[in-house]
Design a protein around this nucleic acid. Structure first.
Lengths: 343, 343
DNA sequence: ACGTGGTGGTGAAACGTTTGTGCAGATCCT
DNA sequence: AGGATCTGCACAAACGTTTCACCACCACGT
């Protein structure tokens, strides 16, 4: 390790001068030639500041943790990208916590902030974790921002425009002429699913329609759960002619189950799912989706977190709550939607 | 922040005693009642050791970086899981570096080790990065292990059993009765692709066959590149009746292009891809693949890295090079392979 | 009474930074 | 010429931890 001492020795100045020059401290007065001598020495010796020393002194680690339920789930990877990229813009690095041992409430999770390993935490909670429990597990709310996992009073929250997504999907089906529209939702207390469903309901209402209880499920966002949901909904009398699916993995599950049941998509059933990921292209038929600005949301979450750290710096009373709508949710037209049968 | 001083004050002992008790220093002699008083004070005050202070003193951050080309690529997410999980076993946390700004050679990448932000780096390089360039960009080879990205002399390397995977895929096609077998490879200098191809070649040779040059491509592991590759190979005269595809994303690309060309899979063409990810189930037809122990490889990589840090501790002359074969690559039979036409 | 040895701790240095304060010497003003 | 001001840098403390070295005290044997 080459330290400030080494550079100082090489340049024939004191340690503090080296530190101030390298950090371009505005309060320093120094002869230009001394400054360049210092700079040159640092370059020559390949000095790099030791981050532990710096963190200790500044009490900032320039690290943040991104907690997601599962990196394997493609719906989160865009988020990861957005977060990492924006974090780097701010000279922050990202600690990835996706293991169950790192989820809220666990010891690992608490240590992140308690041991001051990271300056703040970005938390996208999973469906299994009830928000009340998560809220109670938050040891440092002022250093936490919830991603698509709110609201919790006293904690900054940032969400996608789920309502708009629901509206967009429903609007598309209405435009095609559907009236028997169902909704395949997430688990019961899922707030994203609630909001997406609200978008569906509202849009149907605007068209003088209602979302039938027997055309709605709340079994979860997974491929598996959606197959169950599809089997249920498609055996109702009358069956819906179109489904809005709250999640794209679930949407693919619906497609699979419909095929299994001998129901042709899009001829006999239209399917539009919310959230766009790559497999939506390659499944058969290619799935029409609503693309969500996940990366952008991740970036905004970083901004909110770091802004909170700047100002509050102790007492975090300025709890933000934003929904990102830029870029806006966007309909991605593929092959799983068509006018209803017999039209 | 509650520090050792606070605990010491509360318990009426010196700072060093608290530190030694909490770290259960074997060399300490202490009255049982004092010890429990210290423990109780720490519990009461919710003491948590400050990681910056600890890192500075111990010159270990208990952090490691996992550098991958792209988290969005599903082929890497299992690896991420394996790494994170095993790292936690060792009380290490994982810094995720997937942004281009964190790739080998970049400033961000170098800072990871130079500033001692992390103790070591796990590097899965991307296809665009030539291994020679990467090798030169490694400022601290002794703190680096290459994942599926070797070999580089002087650097620990860990790889999957690519040859076995190639063998397994080819064996399957031979067993079905195919003789016109082609290979869709990665970019030209890709060592994983070279090894997978070697497995194909060897298995064909064992059966008295050869891999025809005109039935081989090396255009890349991506969906896009594989569509080009498929178009090329399938318009040869004679066309292969079966393809081993070096990567699953590419495999799905082959499927798409075949459909586009009106070639029915598996009736007219069998496709088996190496590496198993979720979309392989949902594409049409479902893709037969060879499942690779990516998580296990990630775990082993962590073991190798940390072992290297223990022993070498300065001069890293014991460069390991392992291929993980447990669990072994496994054929996952789905719907994209069948006996050749007219058999 | 006096060394000896064990018990139960304490003190201080060090890890590498950052930053407020001090202090020589030079320059300037009158 | 003598104080005031400025220039250019050095000193030292502090962040929180770990760990080596040391010491006061007591009991014990002689």
């Amino acid at each position: 390790m080459v330290t400030l001492r080494d550079v100082a020795g090489h340049a024939g100045v004191s340690v503090s001068v080296v530190s101030r020059v390298l950090n371009s401290d505005p309060s320093i007065r120094i002869r230009p030639e001394t400054r360049s001598r210092v700079l040159e020495s640092a370059r020559l010796l390949r000095y790099a500041p030791n981050s532990a020393g710096r963190s200790l002194r500044r009490s900032r680690t320039h690290l943040l943790a991104l907690v997601v339920p599962d990196v394997t789930n493609a719906t989160f990877t865009d988020l990861v990208n957005g977060v990492e990229s924006r974090a780097l813009d701010h000279d922050y690095s990202v600690l990835l916590a996706s293991s169950p041992r790192m989820q809220p409430g666990s010891d690992g999770f608490n240590r992140l902030l308690n041991e001051r390993l990271v300056d703040g935490v970005l938390l996208q909670k999973g469906d299994e974790a009830p928000i009340e429990l998560v809220a109670r597990a938050l040891s440092h709310p002022e250093r936490t921002v919830l991603i698509n996992s709110g609201p919790v009073s006293g904690v900054a929250t940032i969400a996608i425009d789920d309502v708009a997504a629901g509206v967009l999907a429903t609007r598309h089906l209405l435009d095609l002429g559907h009236t028997g529209i169902g909704y395949v939702g997430g688990v019961p207390a899922s707030d994203t699913s609630d909001r997406r469903q609200a978008g569906v309901v509202r849009t149907l209402a605007d068209a003088g329609l209602t979302l039938a209880r027997e055309h709605t499920t709340a079994l979860g966002y997974t491929y598996r759960s959606a197959r169950d949901a599809a089997r249920l909904l498609l055996s109702r009398q009358p069956a819906p002619t179109a489904l809005v699916v709250g999640n794209v993995n679930a949407g693919i599950g619906v497609l699979t189950e419909a095929a299994q049941m001998g129901i042709r998509v899009p001829d006999e059933l239209s399917v539009v799912a919310i959230h766009d990921i790559w497999p939506a292209i390659t499944c058969a038929p290619a799935l029409t989706t609503v693309r969500l600005p996940m990366a952008s949301m991740g970036a905004t979450a970083v901004d909110v977190l770091l802004a909170g750290l700047e100002t509050s710096d102790g007492d975090g009373t300025d709890t933000t709550s934003r929904v990102v709508d830029d870029p806006a949710p966007e309909l991605v037209l593929r092959a799983s939607t068509a006018p209803p049968p017999g039209s």
